[in-house]
């Protein structure tokens, strides 16, 4: 078997992402798992900066730089055209940021998911409008500093996975770059499923999160280990599987490494911890009620993925 680094890479170096960019890591891992028979859609965001200036590009698969809110219907248009052409071997992949997914592109994504168009949609979530210089989005977590919430974000992060589940689409999963094999496994699984697949990929942004660039990997592991960002998947909107049993570290371990949270009071940290605990309990309840068998096997360490 080829080692991971001997497999072809479809995000070329020389791109313009910031040093330590988690989003570039995420795109690279996703594209690698997708393979060459992929047509990708990107939208105005850091993905565009990574795309490069004419006539050079970092993308090693055919890619279109579409408009901000239409990653999903653009990919759906490609997918359906490919279907018409009988090219069932090529898959359409959409990349959009949290702004393009949670906010401006939410309706378009919903429309595609409702039609169950055959695409893989990857939301590269860096929790804010980072390409325009760090503004709040509906994915920005509670109390986080951004350029438009200088006093801290007063609202909680939107639960996009619940929104996706409400579409009863065949597959939605969370992933982070901190767990690269899990991410790639999910992409490979998504490739085998027909319909709208949604990957919510937490992609740390050292620039916007106000942290040293070398922390991107660590922070994404901590996001999972503190339950701030659990790894799970939802099949057909009803079958929930937690893929990884975290250590359950206190949220400070995640928050205090990031400058965007440095102003937090202990009450605010407690509030975040409480929210995280409640979300985790609810997630466990869902995973428990949808499959009691998984629960027992999951208690041993390692990963557990839903049926293929």
């Amino acid at each position: 078997m080829k080692s991971p680094e001997q497999q072809p890479n479809f995000l070329r170096p020389g791109h313009a992402a910031c040093a330590g960019c988690g989003l570039a890591v995420g795109m690279r891992l996703v594209l690698q798992a997708m393979g060459p028979k992929t047509i990708a859609v990107i939208v105005p965001s850091c993905e565009g900066s990574i795309g490069g200036v004419y006539p050079n590009t970092a993308y090693g698969v055919p890619t279109i730089h579409s408009a901000f809110e239409i990653a999903a219907p653009t990919a759906a248009g490609i997918a359906n055209a490919l279907k018409i052409q009988g090219r069932h071997d090529i898959q359409a992949l959409a990349f959009a940021g949290d702004g393009g997914t949670f906010d401006i592109g939410l309706a378009a994504l919903s429309g595609v998911a409702k039609n169950n168009d055959d695409i893989i949609y990857v939301c590269l979530d860096n929790e804010g409008y980072m390409n325009t210089g760090i503004q709040v989005s509906s994915s920005t977590p509670s109390f986080a500093w951004t350029g438009t919430t200088p006093g801290g974000n007063p609202r909680r992060k939107k639960n996009i996975m619940e929104i996706m589940a409400a579409h009863y689409n065949p597959y939605s999963a969370t992933a982070t770059i901190g767990f690269p094999q899990d991410l790639q496994q999910k992409i490979i699984k998504a490739k085998r499923i027909r319909g709208t697949k949604f990957i919510h990929l937490l992609s740390p942004c050292p620039t916007g999160w106000r942290m040293p660039p070398e922390l991107s990997a660590d922070i994404s592991v901590l996001a999972v280990e503190t339950n701030v960002f659990p790894l799970y998947e939802i099949e057909n909107g009803v079958r929930w599987t937690i893929n990884y049993e975290p250590r359950g570290l206190p949220v400070e371990a995640y928050l205090l490494k990031q400058g965007r949270f440095k102003h937090l009071t202990s009450e605010q940290i407690n509030q975040i911890q409480q929210d995280v605990n409640e979300e985790w309990a609810r997630l466990n309840q869902r995973a428990g009620s949808s499959s009691s068998k998984d629960r027992t096997s999951r208690s041993t360490k390692g990963f557990k993925h839903g049926k293929k």
Partner: peptide, 9 residues
């Protein structure tokens, strides 16, 4: 764009 960003150091 058919060129590669690899030319950018």
């Amino acid at each position: 764009s058919y060129g590669s960003t690899e030319i950018i150091e």
